[in-house]
Design a protein around this nucleic acid. Structure first.
Length: 454
RNA sequence: GGCGACGUGGCCAAGUGGUUAAGGCAGAGGUUUGCAAAACCUUGAUCAGCGGUUCGAAUCCGCUCGUCGCCUCCA
């Protein structure tokens, strides 16, 4: 049985859904004001694997992920660039989807946008005011944290222990320093929507409440996001949602991934130490980055290093080699133990590191059988199947070098004739020359194969 | 100040009370190869330090040292 670590209880809990067989999963999406980086990629790969594994287990997963497309950072950036905010957010949300496709992250079933649900948000805020959980203030609206007796239960902090204003100056007009904005009154020139409290835009946290309840109902099975979202974002979502719907828990399992570090420091735009997704995918390949991410447990912080990703790229090649040319969809019953071990690892709060060890063993097995001229298709098929649960494509890397293939084929054919004539010096010159051009040539009893090298 | 994560062989990383501490990368040796490449086989650690609990600890407790994160920008 699947067990998931729940941030709320700080324990692993057996996974039981609200509705049998159905998983309602909401993952916090990006604020689309700039390119996403490989830290974001880590998070979405983690939740992609969660989804894929749940689907493998037979659950009908309903996966919703929002785009935050109205907020201060977007407004600021659009001013800097002189581009309308909606154009800017559309540009980066499109780019985000392309990046996710490149990483083989399955698309969510729905991508609600904050700007498209303003009416719902206004209605929810009005209701919170009506119930006494929120109060208007000079065109803004704030959530009254003291109205939620459980406030702090996710992050396990108490209001009186928190160091309000540690990073941001406290607005003295608020009733309580931790009260947070549901609605922000617009300053001149800012994007604004009409509301009972004057023109403005939604605060950050309320959009997730409005969107998740509209898309998935008042209660979720899984709510996920990065570690840093625990406080305040998810804490505030819980407070709003549970007060609003009167139903608790808002989400049964709160999952949070650890942070990606670069040079042992948090990867963040403000630190200036970010690597772009397309850059890494192009250089190492999507499988390599996924293997790098999945080789450690998702809740642990992970340090990005050239060496670790290169190592993952080597592994990706090895796995791809092991399934290359093998019959697809062969009988895997002989490998039931390997499958069971993979499932046991994944059932243990998605222990992908252990799960990968099963794939490595299958790769070795497949290669060994093949080289001893036995049928490797069972091992290879299971490797493909379990690999796809981890979102691995297991394809050799190909350059879209349009039109050069016939020339390479010709050179390889000529080299074959030279070898046949024992003209090894010349044959090696061809091979070395091709390698310098990025083409590796491999001889085997079955013939000669060549491929582009990264 | 409050809350939390972590320190396992050169590198990455499982394992959280009990036979020989998974696995991968790199390195070394070997098989194969005209030579290579790919593949396969073999090969290394007593778990940051100190003290304690226990018949028994990497695994529990305490302290020390070190690293990282959160406390209204953030996946």
């Amino acid at each position: 049985m699947l067990h998931i670590y729940n941030t709320l209880s700080r324990r692993e809990e057996p996974f039981e859904t609200i509705e049998p067989g159905v998983v309602r999963m909401y993952v916090c999406g990006p604020t689309v004001y700039a390119s996403s980086h490989i830290g974001h990629a880590l998070s979405y790969i983690v939740f992609d694997v969660v989804r894929r594994y749940l689907e493998y287990k037979g659950f009908n997963v309903r996966h919703v992920q929002n785009f935050t497309d109205v907020d201060d950072k977007i407004i600021n950036r659009s001013r800097e660039l002189g581009i309308p905010w909606d154009e800017l957010s559309a540009r980066y949300s499109d780019e985000f989807l392309r990046d996710m496709d490149a990483l083989n992250v399955k698309r969510a079933h729905e991508y609600p946008r904050a700007s498209a649900v303003i009416e719902d948000i206004v209605a929810d805020i009005a209701r919170l005011i009506e119930m006494g959980n929120a109060y208007p203030l000079d065109g803004d609206v704030y959530f009254r944290v003291l109205s939620d007796p459980d406030y702090g239960k996710l992050s396990h902090r108490r209001l009186d222990e928190m160091n309000a204003g540690a990073r941001v100056e406290v607005d003295e007009r608020k009733e309580h320093p931790m009260d947070f904005a549901l609605w922000k009154g617009a300053k001149p020139g800012e994007p604004a929507w009409d509301s009972p409290w004057g023109p403005g835009r939604p605060g950050w946290h309320i959009e997730c409440t409005s969107m998740s309840t509209r898309s998935l109902g008042p209660q979720l099975d899984i709510h996920g996001g990065g570690n840093d979202l625990i406080f305040p974002h998810h804490e505030n979502e819980i407070a709003q949602s549970e007060q609003l719907t009167g139903k608790a828990p808002f989400a049964r399992y709160w999952m949070h991934n650890g942070w990606l570090l670069l040079n042992n420091e948090k990867m963040a735009k403000s630190e200036g130490n970010v690597l772009s997704i397309d850059n890494v995918v192009e250089k190492y390949g999507a499988d390599a980055y996924r293997i790098f991410v999945l080789s450690s447990h998702y809740r642990r912080p992970l340090n990005f290093s050239e060496e670790a990703v290169v190592s993952a790229a080597t592994v990706a090649e090895r796995l791809a080699t092991a399934v290359e040319g093998a019959e697809v969809g062969a009988d895997t019953t002989a490998y039931a133990e390997d499958r069971a071990e993979f499932e046991a690892a994944m059932d243990d709060d998605f222990n992908t590191s252990r799960a990968l060890a099963v794939l490595y063993r299958l790769a070795t097995e497949s290669n060994r059988l093949r080289s001893s001229e036995q049928d490797e298709s069972g091992a290879a098929s299971l490797l493909r199947e379990l690999g796809s649960v981890l979102g691995l494509r297991l394809e050799r890397w190909e350059v879209s070098a349009v039109g050069v293939e016939p020339f390479v084929d010709l050179l390889v054919q000529i080299r074959k004739e030279l070898r046949g004539a024992k003209q090894f010096a010349l044959a090696d010159r061809v091979r070395d020359g091709l390698r310098e051009l990025g083409v590796s040539v491999e001889d085997s009893p079955q013939g000669t194969k060549w491929r582009f090298e990264r």
